[in-house]
Nucleic acid binder design. Structure first.
Lengths: 199, 199
DNA sequence: TATAATATTTACTGACCGGTCAACTATACG
DNA sequence: CGTATAGTTGACCGGTCAGTAAATATTATA
């Protein structure tokens, strides 16, 4: 098998891990199951990653990279107004948490929030990775608030703090949607975001 | 052993389950471990509960009962103003999520939010129980908003929706605090709650 | 082509998990 | 009493889990 295909094996493991951990969580995802999904043998798994938790860390970092490039950068580098950027983010979020898991569309919640809730107290390395990813989320939100403030869309204020609160609200809505099996929560969150940005 | 002591065994199992599941989550809590903490043998466990998940359900319902009687009812039956009730709730929440686990004080987050994130997609029974508990939370918040509205503390508005958003914000802050290992998020959330109540 | 490094495969641990079972003990009640 | 019922105990499953080992195959390099 060529180096290209070899790289594919690692990539497939990463992708399978990201998908399965998002669907079922870290602990409920078995290594065997994961290998099956990646069409790799367990030996290969442990050739590329020293342990299950190392794969999880690599997978979540890879997921964030994809989300950042596929969602955040496109939205926050447009010349839309700051508030319009945030509006697009909320729309994207409430559309992305509904995922095709093969059998059904399910509300999986936030891949980072899920993992944080499950693993932050169990593994310090994962906790720190997630903390940084959360931080990155907030930085994007803050940048939009700064833009909105520059363009006099919102009054001056502590945008870093505003960003954190907005992010917390979003994560909370994600949890509510998951437990309620209902996306309707999100139909009312953008007005609240506007409010939080304006005070 | 008397009936009284027998009742104690069941109660000890419930209490141990509530504590351990809050600390480590459902899946990371072993039946053996749980029995050890409750000073009961595994046979006794399965005498009182048909399965691990049944104990978890009973434990989370029991936890909610305690929280409702120990936190919600005392706060929301005072004759404090609606907004002052909410302020007390936020204060209580940010104080209760910091728990002595024996070795250290740790930020465990919300027992219901944690379990919902972990189990909502795995077990439909737990999901429904948690959905109802969330609903109950929101009802208390809504009652305070209604009071505040009656007493002209806040303008008229959709208090049910406001309550949901406030609850989501709180759950999000709980998650942030846990992942950041830092309670400071809560120093800025009451002003936001006031804001959300007033729009 | 020889050789070394990398990748894949198969088979296999050993520990742990939730759950079962049957024997034993204590209590309640007629 | 005696007997049914409730509670307790410790030994014991079968399955699953993350992780390992060693042989084999593939590729890169010279």
């Amino acid at each position: 098998m060529s180096l290209l295909q070899a790289a594919n094996t690692r990539e497939r493991l990463l992708q399978a891990a990201a998908a399965l951990i998002w669907e079922r969580g870290y602990q409920a995802t078995g290594v065997d199951e994961l290998c099956a999904r990646a069409e790799a043998k367990k030996g290969s798994f442990y050739h590329y990653f020293p342990s299950k938790i190392d794969l999880a860390i690599a997978a979540i970092e890879s997921t964030w990279q994809q989300v950042e490039n596929g969602v955040f950068k496109p939205i926050f580098s447009t010349d839309l107004s700051g508030m319009e950027q945030l509006s697009q983010l909320v729309a994207k979020v409430s559309e992305l948490l509904l995922v095709n898991t093969g059998d059904r569309k399910m509300i999986l919640g936030c891949p980072f929030g899920n993992l944080g809730q499950e693993m932050a107290l169990h593994d310090e390395r994962i906790r720190v990775v997630l903390q940084n990813i959360f931080s990155a989320h907030c930085a994007y939100i803050e940048s939009a608030l700064n833009k909105a403030q520059r363009e006099a869309e919102i009054p001056a204020g502590d945008n870093a703090q505003r960003a954190k609160n907005i992010f917390a609200l979003l994560e909370g809505c994600l949890l509510l949607a998951k437990v309620d099996k209902d996306l309707n929560v999100f139909r009312h969150t953008m007005p609240v975001v506007r409010l939080m940005a304006s005070a």
